[in-house]
Design a protein around this nucleic acid. Structure first.
Lengths: 154, 154
DNA sequence: TAAATGATGCATAGTGAATACATCTATTGC
DNA sequence: GCAATAGATGTATTCACTATGCATCATTTA
């Protein structure tokens, strides 16, 4: 059971921008920090821009920033946006589906899952743990992680 | 967000066998009824046999049957068995993971999801909706569905 | 006007699941 | 005891989806 990397990256972008609300960040910068594909990230960011989560500025010295404050970005709503397939098991291809009691069980389980996510905003997630800026700042110019700061639990 | 077809098929097998507890069913029979790969199904069924969910009988006139009564087959436990990857987003590959507040949010959401499934057994699922045997019986010898009985909601 | 940066579309590659194939083992019926 | 049936197991191939790469266009600013 997994969400797509699409959702993963979208969250990382939002978290990063939430920590840098004072300035514009270029897509190249974010891609380098996380060590992921700039091209892929660009598509995700465009999607987030179109959905209103981000604001983009074109041209020289351009970049992106959050389109709303972190307390107005709901995690559940975001995931509903980035994940489009919530057909947990392939009921659409199963012949007993109309009389199958599992469908309602899964519906209820999914509702339980989303209910938790709906309770949190990006601001809540930021507040839940310590600042991760030191981790981001440990990234070298080529995106490699400085081993001086091992990733340990706080 | 999806579970694997592996889980999907495992559930279908259990539901089918729960409706035919009076006799042994061959893997070929189950594969034909659902119109799915017999080879793939065989591996899933073997897995279920090894886990104690099913009992198998080799040789001529052999087949499989439930290894426990439906009320002792917990849906949550089953899915934990058939799904081995619950790393919803790729936290293991994200550098801010140790300080990221999303991990605990996802842990909580996943717990909410599994909590619902843990509350139900196969017997509950069977009781939730009407009998689907008529649907299964509408299958012809080659596995095609008789269109005389459209799949409508009860 | 050139450089930087986002926007967009298409082609390619990687990954993992599903499927197919082959062979072995066990049981039953004749 | 032999042949047929049916499960057990391992390997290889196909397929779908995702991620990535590449090319090009659009926009802004120094």
């Amino acid at each position: 059971m997994r969400l797509t990397q699409y959702t993963d990256y979208a969250l990382r972008v939002l978290l990063y921008l939430a920590r840098h609300q004072d300035r514009l960040c270029s897509i190249a910068e974010i891609a380098t920090v996380y060590g992921i594909s700039k091209n892929h990230l660009m598509k995700i960011i465009n999607d987030l821009v179109n959905a209103g989560y981000l604001t983009s500025v074109r041209g020289r010295n351009g970049g992106v920033r959050l389109g709303r404050t972190p307390d107005r970005i709901n995690v559940g709503a975001l995931i509903r946006h980035t994940e489009d397939d919530f057909d947990l098991v392939g009921c659409s291809r199963c012949i007993i589906a109309p009389a199958c009691g599992m469908t309602s069980v899964f519906d209820e389980a999914l509702a339980g899952f989303m209910a938790v996510l709906d309770r949190y905003t990006l601001a809540d997630a930021l507040a839940r743990k310590g600042d991760f800026l030191p981790l981001l700042n440990a990234i070298g110019p080529e995106g490699q992680i400085s081993k001086a700061r091992p990733a340990k639990e706080d």
